[in-house]
Deep mutational scan, measured.
Amino acid sequence: NQASVVANQLIPINTALTLVMMRSEVVTPVGIPAEDIPRLVGMQVNRAVPLGTTLMPDMVKGYA
């Protein structure tokens, strides 16, 4: 099963992502693939992302 990117903490709206904010986990539904974590660093979320939430492509500005 493919691992997805999951929020390791509450990520406030418009926050630029850092490695410490994300972890990989096998979840359903599948979100952004864990191998894209390096690409996500520095990108901003367009909404608040609660701890444990799977990051979906539409949550990250410029990802989709």
Score class of each variant (00 low, 15 high):
G31P: 00
R23W: 13
G42N: 09
L10K: 08
M56N: 13
I13F: 09
T54P: 03
R47Q: 15
M22W: 02
A64H: 14
A7S: 08
A3E: 15
D36F: 04
A48V: 09
A3C: 14
N46C: 15
P12M: 11
E35G: 09
G52F: 09
M43S: 05
Q44R: 04
E25F: 02
K61T: 10
L40D: 00
Q44W: 10
A7R: 01
P12L: 05
Q2Y: 06
N46Y: 04
V27I: 04
K61F: 04
P57K: 12
T28M: 06
T18I: 10
D58E: 09
R39W: 02
I13S: 08
L17F: 08
L17H: 00
L10H: 13
A48L: 05
N8M: 09
I13V: 07
M21E: 03
N14D: 13
N8E: 12
A3F: 13
G31H: 02
L40N: 01
Y63C: 04
Q2K: 02
Y63G: 12
I32M: 05
S24Y: 07
M56C: 15
Q9L: 07
M59P: 00
V60S: 01
A48R: 10
L51C: 15
R23P: 01
L40E: 00
N14F: 06
A64I: 12
M43N: 15
N1Y: 13
T28C: 15
Q2G: 15
G42M: 12
K61E: 08
L19Y: 13
Y63N: 11
V20H: 15
A7V: 12
G42F: 03
V60C: 02
N1W: 08
V41G: 10
A48Y: 13
R47A: 14
G52S: 14
T53D: 12
A34V: 05
E35T: 10
V45S: 11
R39K: 12
A3K: 03
V45F: 01
L51D: 11
P50S: 12
D58H: 10
P38K: 08
V5R: 00
R39E: 03
A64L: 10
V49H: 02
S24F: 05
L10E: 09
S24R: 03
L19W: 04
V60K: 01
I32C: 15
K61L: 14
T28V: 11
N14Y: 06
Q44N: 07
N14G: 09
L40P: 00
V26D: 15
A16N: 07
D36P: 00
G31I: 02
N14H: 06
K61C: 14
L10G: 11
L17Q: 00
S24G: 12
I11E: 00
Q2L: 08
V41M: 06
A34W: 08
M43T: 09
V6L: 13
G42Y: 05
D36N: 05
D36S: 12
Q2N: 14
A16R: 03
T15F: 04
V5C: 13
E25W: 02
E35F: 07
L55S: 00
Q9E: 12
V26Y: 08
V27E: 10
I13H: 09
T53S: 09
L19F: 14
V6Y: 11
Q9T: 07
I13R: 04
A34L: 12
M43R: 12
M21S: 09
P57D: 03
V5I: 11
R23I: 13
M21H: 11
G52L: 08
G62C: 15
I13C: 03
T18E: 05
V5W: 01
A7W: 00
Q2A: 14
A7G: 06
A7P: 02
L55K: 01
I13W: 03
T15P: 01
G31L: 01
R39Y: 13
A48I: 11
K61V: 10
E35I: 14
L19H: 13
P33H: 12
M56I: 11
R39F: 10
D36W: 03
P50K: 09
I37W: 02
M59Q: 05
M21G: 04
I32E: 00
N46V: 13
V60H: 01
A34P: 10
N8Q: 12
A16H: 09
E25R: 02
L17E: 01
A3P: 05
V6T: 15
V49Y: 01
R23C: 09
P12G: 09
L51S: 14
N8L: 10
G31K: 03
K61Q: 10
P29H: 11
T18H: 05
I37H: 04
L51R: 07
L19G: 07
V60N: 01
M21F: 12
G62H: 11
N46A: 10
A7C: 03
S24D: 10
I37M: 11
L19S: 11
P12E: 08
E25A: 08
R39S: 03
M21L: 15
T15L: 03
N1I: 15
G52A: 14
I32Y: 02
S4R: 02
A64K: 14
V41L: 10
L55N: 00
N46K: 07
Y63L: 12
S24A: 08
V30W: 03
I13K: 03
V6Q: 11
Q9V: 11
T54D: 01
I32K: 00
M43W: 07
V27P: 05
P50M: 11
M43G: 09
A16I: 06
V60E: 01
N8D: 15
D36T: 13
D36R: 04
A3L: 09
A7H: 01
G62K: 04
V30F: 09
A16K: 07
S4Q: 05
I37T: 10
P29T: 13
V41P: 06
P38R: 05
P57E: 05
E35D: 05
P12V: 11
S4G: 15
L19E: 07
I37Y: 02
V6D: 00
V5L: 05
Q44S: 09
V26M: 08
N8V: 12
T53G: 11
L10Q: 09
R23E: 06
L40W: 02
P33D: 11
P33W: 10
T15C: 02
N46P: 05
I11P: 00
Q2H: 13
V27S: 05
L10W: 07
Q2I: 09
A16M: 12
T54Y: 05
T54N: 03
L17C: 02
D36H: 06
R47V: 14
G52C: 05
A3S: 11
T54Q: 04
M56V: 12
I37E: 05
P12A: 10
A64E: 13
M22G: 00
R23S: 12
K61P: 12
P38T: 03
E35W: 02
T28L: 03
P12C: 07
I32N: 01
K61I: 08
V5N: 00
I11K: 00
P12Y: 04
P38W: 13
G62V: 02
M22S: 01
V5T: 14
V20Q: 14
